[in-house]
Simulated assay, not measured.
Amino acid sequence: MDDLVRGVVPEGYKIELFEGRVIMTPRSPEQDWTVSDVRDAAKSAGISRDRILSDVLIKFPGENDAAPDLTIITGGATRSGNSFTCVDVLAVVEIPSEPDDEKDYVRNVHKYSRYGIPSYLIADPFRRVCTLMTEPHANGYGSTEEIPYGEELTLRLVTGETVRVDTGSFPVREDPAGH
């Protein structure tokens, strides 16, 4: 706690302000490896590294900002300091840090869809499935597809770019509660 008071984030932790609460979670190796695999697939699809962000602040006007596990932004997106705005986001990828993570499965679904994020992907190492949501509207996403780990996932961006991700290398985790 003393480190936090001095403004130092302990090694391996991510701190977010979400709905008025400070959430401090360690980034797991599974999160890191999955982000790396998706980043590599995006780069292989021809998306430049300056459009692929990890844990970079995305501003949502009138609401709490976020630092998604991985974000793909438009070419020519306007940078403001160390952040970007949600209007430039094409896709967000989140990897839950705990089973049935309400932040990723409920709150982020509503937030990202309400702000028109075209594609939201949850790569869940506990359930061993990816949930790809598209067609955002005010209350969620109009289309949801589940892709089991081990199958190829196709992320079609609204720019016409296509990212193919081999989920066979995605790491898995056991539910610590044994569910």
Rank of each mutant, 00 (worst) to 15 (best):
142 G>P: 09
110 H>D: 10
146 E>S: 10
129 V>I: 15
118 P>I: 08
55 D>T: 07
111 K>W: 03
19 E>I: 05
129 V>S: 07
141 Y>D: 02
120 Y>K: 08
109 V>Q: 05
67 A>D: 13
146 E>P: 01
24 M>Q: 11
112 Y>T: 13
9 V>I: 15
120 Y>I: 13
139 N>P: 00
67 A>G: 14
81 G>Q: 12
88 D>A: 14
13 Y>D: 13
150 G>S: 06
27 R>E: 14
78 T>H: 09
76 G>Q: 10
154 T>R: 12
151 E>H: 11
49 R>Q: 09
106 V>D: 15
68 P>D: 04
11 E>C: 06
90 L>I: 08
145 E>H: 06
76 G>D: 09
154 T>Y: 03
16 E>N: 02
116 G>N: 12
27 R>S: 15
148 P>V: 00
123 A>Q: 06
36 S>M: 11
35 V>K: 08
122 I>A: 00
118 P>H: 05
143 S>K: 14
19 E>F: 01
19 E>D: 14
41 A>G: 01
149 Y>T: 00
141 Y>W: 02
139 N>Y: 05
143 S>R: 14
23 I>N: 13
121 L>Q: 01
134 T>D: 04
50 D>A: 04
85 T>R: 11
60 F>Q: 07
139 N>H: 09
152 E>V: 03
77 A>R: 03
156 R>W: 03
132 L>I: 14
93 V>W: 07
87 V>S: 12
126 F>I: 11
31 Q>H: 15
30 E>F: 13
47 I>Y: 00
21 R>F: 02
92 V>T: 04
44 S>L: 13
42 A>K: 04
118 P>W: 00
18 F>G: 00
21 R>A: 15
87 V>L: 04
131 T>D: 04
90 L>H: 08
60 F>V: 07
115 Y>P: 03
138 A>K: 09
112 Y>L: 06
60 F>C: 02
69 D>Y: 05
53 L>C: 05
90 L>V: 06
54 S>W: 06
93 V>K: 01
22 V>W: 04
102 E>P: 08
113 S>K: 14
132 L>M: 02
56 V>P: 05
152 E>D: 09
127 R>T: 03
26 P>L: 04
30 E>L: 07
110 H>A: 10
139 N>W: 03
120 Y>H: 08
86 C>Y: 04
136 P>F: 09
138 A>Y: 05
11 E>I: 11
40 D>N: 06
27 R>C: 11
93 V>T: 12
133 M>G: 03
112 Y>E: 13
90 L>E: 12
86 C>A: 13
43 K>M: 11
153 L>R: 07
40 D>P: 01
